[in-house]
């Protein structure tokens, strides 16, 4: 049996005293794409934030192992250096920091943690040029300040571009499809698909089935009230789309656990 790269066991978290995740368990093996779906307020984005290490979430129980190490003990930067990447639902604008400069530092920090030599400017530019193709990035987007004045679509493209640059082992996409028109969705999904490989896994968090037409998952999990209440193959997403989240609500409420 394969050792999972991410193993979440009975995770319980809250924010400001309110319990959000109520014993969530999930295993992800290398190369797998898992979709996490669920109605609003089910805890999808909380899961993404807790995995990336956002400070305001308090873990009240359970455990997360990433490559066998306890993830929850690590700082956000260490998680990134070990290969975890979160594509934010709402990427932050950082005026005054150029995209390219920021990414050069990030790439070299990650290389340093792996014992690799930092890339010099020339190497970095070539590397960046190659990765820009993946999400059809415009050259001037790399020179602009991080996300500043970017449209919704540009911000999401920039997230996937950063993921391509940092080459993580686990990419978490937090509602990357929200606010995208169909063309932007296709570009972003194509970018993600280009990054799929036997050594790279994804957690695709989404409200709608639509994204999963483009990024076809190996597994689909339904999150409800902070727990995974149903898991299945990609056909589960279609079933959800057809029957709506009320189906899950009714089923879960009727079966008293």
């Amino acid at each position: 049996m394969k050792t999972p790269i991410l193993e979440i066991r009975n995770l319980q978290t809250g924010v400001e005293g309110k319990q959000i995740l109520n014993g969530l368990s999930l295993s992800v093996n290398a190369g797998e794409v898992h979709a996490i779906m669920g109605p609003n307020g089910s805890g999808k984005s909380t899961l993404a934030s807790v995995l990336a290490g956002k400070a305001e979430y308090e873990v009240t129980g359970g455990d997360v192992k990433f490559f066998g190490e306890s993830l929850l003990e690590m700082s956000p930067e260490d998680r990134a250096r070990k290969g975890l990447f979160l594509a934010f639902q709402y990427p932050v604008e950082i005026p005054g920091v150029s995209n390219a400069n920021f990414l050069k530092t990030a790439v070299n920090e990650i290389r340093k943690s792996k014992g690799l030599q930092p890339m010099d400017s020339k190497e970095f530019l070539l590397f960046m040029k190659e990765k820009m193709k993946i999400v059809e990035m415009d050259k001037n987007m790399t020179q602009r300040s991080v996300n500043e004045g970017f449209s919704g679509g540009e911000k999401k493209r920039n997230e996937v571009f950063q993921m391509a640059m940092l080459e993580p082992q686990l990419g978490i996409l937090d509602e990357t499809d929200s606010g995208l028109d169909i063309d932007a969705l296709r570009i972003v999904a194509n970018g993600v698909n280009a990054l799929r490989g036997p050594e790279r896994s994804f957690l695709v968090i989404t409200h709608y089935q639509r994204l999963l037409d483009y990024i076809v998952p190996d597994y689909v999990h339904v999150l409800y009230k902070g727990r995974i209440v149903r898991s299945g193959g990609k056909e589960l997403a279609l079933e959800l789309e057809e029957k709506g989240y009320d189906w899950i609500r009714n089923e879960t409420e009727n079966v008293k656990v």
């Binding site: 400070a55 956000p76 990134a80 934010f88």
Partner: peptide, 25 residues
């Protein structure tokens, strides 16, 4: 800005360097 700090750290940039980044900006 805590959000910006977290964003930079989530890309592998250490806390101190992330602070320098935002201050320099």
């Amino acid at each position: 800005d805590e959000e910006a700090l977290f964003y930079l750290r989530s890309r592998g940039i250490g806390l101190e360097e992330a602070r320098v980044f935002l201050n320099i900006a």
